[in-house]
């Protein structure tokens, strides 16, 4: 079971990143949960300084970047 979290307080990039991550995980046929973390205090606990950020299994992968599906797939495969 993979745990995907999207950190961001609801900007358009954050929504797009969540969408891409969802599609990427589905296409890989993974078992996963996707959570959008929108509370700023919760976001800060991850130590990121730019949103949207992608967190996989509790580990911050990128911050401030809208990744495309291929890039997210690459990170999920590891």
């Amino acid at each position: 079971m993979r745990k995907i979290q999207i950190l961001g307080s609801g900007c358009s990039k954050c929504k797009a990143l969540a969408q891409n991550a969802d599609t990427a995980a589905k296409e890989l046929g993974l078992e996963y949960t996707l959570e959008k973390v929108t509370d700023i205090k919760e976001i800060m606990k991850f130590g990121v300084m730019a949103t949207p950020a992608l967190v996989i299994d509790g580990q911050v992968k990128t911050a401030g970047k809208l990744l495309n599906m291929q890039e997210i797939k690459g990170m999920l495969k590891l």
């Binding site: 961001g8 307080s9 900007c11 990039k13 700023i40 130590g47 300084m49 730019a50």
Partner: peptide, 15 residues
């Protein structure tokens, strides 16, 4: 430095 006003808060707290 790359900046977007939507990231102003995390950046502020981080600094």
């Amino acid at each position: 430095t790359p900046f977007c006003s939507c990231s102003a808060v995390p950046l502020f707290v981080g600094f």
